[in-house]
């Protein structure tokens, strides 16, 4: 019989990341910077929504954006060109999500002094980003109409971790049999406290409500 020694560990794999994230959050609180983690499927309109949103709040508060993608910098350039604010691109090098450490590395490259709000555009994916606390104050996600109102049933974890669900592309609702009431019902099954705001990023409809929500959030974080 070989001599096997067993060392008990009993530790969640996410424990370290959760601690990192909590530390990052309290550092951001000290600096008066609010971090929003924005998640969604690829193609839901995250970048277009951000441009509409930023143009409504950039005169009131100082905003910066971190774009996380597996590759390319098209999104960061698009944001910068359309809004004029600081926008940096993070490459996850094939990873399907950001964790707190990667977020911290990204924040090291943003001039945080005087920055009230940093929006992190997470990798387009409804599975993995939900598992990893990035250190953000709140999680928001965008669900676009063509994806269907039953998405909250298929990706329960994502919807249970989000404080805000933005329903985008409502202009095409009649073509997709998308039921907003059903969608709200399913979201609230996962997370009774989630706020739901329907918008059309293309026309700007509803974006004011998102801007109001975010401005209030940032104000409360700083006071």
């Amino acid at each position: 019989m070989t001599d096997v020694r067993v060392i008990e560990i009993k530790k969640s794999v996410f424990a370290d990341n959760n601690e990192d994230a909590a530390r990052l959050r309290s550092e951001l609180k000290g600096r008066g910077t609010y971090l929003l983690n924005l998640m969604s499927s690829p193609g839901s309109g995250k970048t277009t929504t951000l441009i509409q949103l930023i143009n409504r709040i950039k005169d009131k508060i100082k905003v910066a954006v971190m774009e996380a993608d597996i590759d390319s910098d098209v999104d960061a350039i698009k944001i910068k060109d359309a809004t004029g604010i600081e926008s940096i691109q993070l490459h996850t090098g094939g990873m399907c999500h950001l964790d707190a450490e990667m977020t911290r590395q990204g924040l090291d490259n943003v001039s945080l002094d005087g920055t009230d709000l940093v929006i992190l555009e997470n990798v387009g994916n409804l599975v993995c980003p939900a598992e990893f606390d990035t250190g953000a104050v709140r999680n928001a996600m965008i669900l676009s109409v063509p994806e269907g109102h039953d998405k909250p049933l298929k990706y329960p974890l994502m919807f249970s971790v989000c404080d805000l669900v933005i329903v985008n592309k409502i202009d095409v609702m009649p073509y997709f049999d998308f039921d907003l009431d059903k969608c709200s019902e399913y979201v609230h099954m996962r997370n009774p406290k989630a706020r739901i705001i329907p918008i059309c990023a293309k026309t700007g409809e509803g974006v004011d409500a998102v801007a109001d929500w975010l401005l209030e959030e940032v104000y409360n974080w700083k006071h």
Partner: peptide, 19 residues
């Protein structure tokens, strides 16, 4: 899909415990 990321976390924790 995120299994590789999880594996890196496991490796880090296991190496630490072993040390």
């Amino acid at each position: 899909m995120h299994e590789l990321g999880i594996v890196f976390y496991i490796i880090r924790d296991v190496k630490q415990a072993a040390q």
